[in-house]
Simulated scan of single mutants.
Amino acid sequence: MHGVRNSVVELRQYTLHPGRRDVLIDLFDREFVETQEADGMAVLGQFRDLDDPDRFVWLRGFDDMPSRAQALSRFYGGPVWKAHRDQANATMIDSDDVLLLRPVTAAAGFPAAATPRSPVGHPSPPPSIVLATLYYRDHPFDEAFVDFFDHRMRPLLAETGAAPLACLQTEHADNDFPALPVRTGENAFVWFTRFGSTAALDDHQDRLRRSDRWREQVLPDLSAMLSGAPQQLRLTPTARSLLR
């Protein structure tokens, strides 16, 4: 993983034909990891959605918007994608659910991976869970919200076993590679954390629900700042995901 170099991140959620997710993951992990990185992007993590058997989620990072357009042009105009795109596209119903994001501060991006990526065909590492929490509002997230998150939410999340790993918000720059659509007209704040097991995630959520400070002081103020209920993605890393 390329640490805080990734000032632009795509959160990509694909809806797949029933029973085709492992076909795409096998192809992706074998053909689309090192080849994308060779063209100037970072494959930060790829996942099965624990709550939807036909959803594949992955994260891709870029140094900035101009380098994003250049890297995407190289990859999608290159031989690897042309050789495998028909097989990949055959697994997909929709691949346009994409949030274009940036770290909320220079230090809030994904940290460097603790361990190297597993080789192709290597046995899967022990299971883990990555939790992505998505907040939405009808105007951009600002410094006041980041301050609220950092000073009132982050300590409580850490106390209950869910220290945030990275915090991102919508990148409002124009999509300069229109061949790959992204969601527009939205304001998102997305934070990520990880757990060693589903039991650890369940324990965090139970401790948070039982926290008087969360229920009485933090949650009411958080809810007042958001438009609608938060969305959570419970993600299980593939064998070759760096983020795990």
Rank of each mutant, 00 (worst) to 15 (best):
F62Q: 02
P119A: 12
D51R: 12
R117K: 11
R60C: 10
V57D: 04
V57S: 05
H84W: 14
G61M: 10
R20Y: 02
D147Q: 14
S118T: 09
S124G: 08
Q70H: 06
Q70I: 05
I93R: 10
A83N: 03
G40P: 00
D39R: 09
L99V: 00
L16V: 02
V57L: 06
V98K: 02
G121F: 09
A132F: 12
L156C: 08
Y136E: 15
H122Y: 11
L100D: 01
S95F: 08
V146G: 00
A108R: 12
G40L: 01
F141I: 10
F110D: 07
H17T: 13
A108E: 13
A107N: 03
D39N: 14
A69F: 00
F28E: 10
D49Q: 11
P119V: 01
P103G: 05
T105Y: 02
D97Y: 11
D64W: 01
V57H: 05
E37G: 11
V146M: 03
D150F: 01
V43I: 11
Q46K: 00
R48Q: 09
R55L: 03
H122F: 13
L72F: 07
A114G: 11
L131E: 15
M153V: 12
R68Q: 11
N89E: 15
D142W: 06
P111C: 02
Y135M: 08
G45D: 10
L24V: 12
E143M: 04
V43N: 05
A112F: 10
L134F: 01
L157W: 07
Y136H: 14
P79K: 03
T115Q: 11
S67I: 03
R30A: 09
D96W: 05
P127D: 13
F75C: 04
D29F: 10
L134P: 00
P123W: 01
Q46H: 15
D94G: 02
D64T: 04
L157H: 11
D49Y: 07
A88S: 13
R152E: 15
R21P: 00
M92T: 07
R12Y: 09
R74A: 14
D142F: 06
G19Q: 08
G19E: 09
P79Q: 06
P18K: 08
M153T: 08
N89G: 02
R102F: 01
D97W: 10
D64R: 03
A42H: 04
W81T: 02
L131D: 08
H17A: 13
D147H: 15
D150P: 00
Q87A: 15
V80A: 02
M65P: 06
G109D: 02
F141Q: 07
S67R: 09
V130Y: 03
A90G: 12
G19W: 03
T115P: 01
A132T: 12
A88Q: 01
F141V: 08
R74P: 01
G19T: 10
A83P: 03
R74F: 05
L99H: 03
Y14D: 00
Y135L: 15
Q36E: 06
P18A: 15
L72V: 04
L44F: 03
D150C: 04
A90Y: 04
L44P: 00
E143R: 14
Q87R: 15
P18Y: 08
P111S: 04
L16I: 04
V104M: 10
Q70E: 12
A158I: 03
E31H: 11
L24Q: 12
E31N: 04
F62I: 02
A71R: 02
P79T: 09
T133V: 14
V130C: 08
